[in-house]
Design a protein around this nucleic acid. Structure first.
Lengths: 186, 186
DNA sequence: CTGCCGGCGTGACATGTTGTCGCAGCATGT
DNA sequence: ACATGCTGCGACAACATGTCACGCCGGCAG
């Protein structure tokens, strides 16, 4: 995909970016503008909802871990405004548990940072995910497995860190440190 | 959860297990039977579809990586037989991409091996009435999960420590040390 | 209002675990 | 005989964890 405008000016699509990482939204907004979209930006889920209410977007890109509500909370609220809205979740703290939840709540796709504007557009626009050349060659790594398990148990405990640590028989301090780190890929 | 039957005999639910790992299906089938389900087993996606056509199950557990078609191919075909069927994907080769695809194709949930019968039941039944009865569930500890995963991959590589370490992206020395320790309980 | 409790975030430090390198012994195939 | 690959193990620095401790916040009973 090129950086040329993909859309004609008359029907410029409107995309909403919601992320508390300002560097990310600035770069992504610029890239999206260059590709011919009209961009709105919000730094939190609450702000994102406000913006979307005033000017309903066609597309949205949401982060998961933000101050206040997570993108998973915002997602169904956006779809209430417009059930046809195409929403992707884009986060550095990706896990299978949150991916499953995001798709169940109506997300179009789920991406891991780092991802560029083209990745996002493909995720938003591609009609059907290609067939499954996507089954990995190797089994999941132990670190990744641990991350996925922690995320799952954490979700089961509604995000309660202390309860999760108790359930896993692990020290709360240790769990906190693991959660602060980014997930390992593969 | 106990190993007591969760269901009354008159309305014994029917569950289909599809996995080419015979050890897995044997153990899982036994655990499911003990919990009061009627179990069918298939060793491939094609065989699973055949079995399901003759006797449509209420639940299904599908592996991803199998000889022939993947569980992702079987999934929509099963839902054609009965749109109400509750299906989970359970695999050692898990990834966010396949998780997203599985949910889009109508899976109820997506789990990483190793997972036990209780994990599967929770994934199948969560948000339903039955889950209330089996809530006092204790998640497996991270250490135990890691041990079981290592054993699984080790078996897949015929006990080759070096190959296993490579597949898991972990240092051979570290794997050796982990293997010398005894399995953690709980 | 106030004290108590539980959850959350953080610092500090001793101890345990891992990554990394190296070496030697054993099989296997050329 | 040689190359290759797997295994076991010692050593040590880098990193992760368990543990204790403190302060902050929000809910709730007294």
């Amino acid at each position: 995909m090129t950086e040329e405008s993909l859309f004609c000016a008359e029907e410029q699509p409107h995309i909403l970016l919601v992320d508390d990482d300002e560097t990310f939204t600035r770069v992504m907004a610029r890239a999206m503008t260059r590709r011919g979209l009209r961009v709105s930006v919000a730094g939190s889920a609450e702000e994102g909802l406000e913006v979307a209410r005033k000017d309903v977007p066609d597309y949205a890109v949401l982060d998961l871990k933000m101050e206040g509500d997570s993108g998973l909370v915002l997602l169904p609220k956006l779809l209430e405004l417009d059930a046809e809205m195409q929403v992707v979740i884009l986060t550095g703290y990706s896990s299978i548990a949150t991916a499953v939840e995001a798709i169940k709540r109506g997300a179009r796709n789920y991406l891991c940072k780092p991802a560029d504007a083209d990745d996002v557009l493909v995720a938003l626009l591609s009609d059907r995910a290609e067939v499954e050349n996507l089954v990995p060659e190797n089994p999941i790594s132990v670190d990744r497995l641990q991350w996925e398990h922690i995320q799952r148990v954490l979700a089961e405990h509604d995000g309660n860190v202390s309860a999760t640590a108790r359930a896993l028989g692990m020290h709360r301090r240790t769990l906190q440190r693991k959660l602060q780190k980014r997930p390992v890929r593969r």
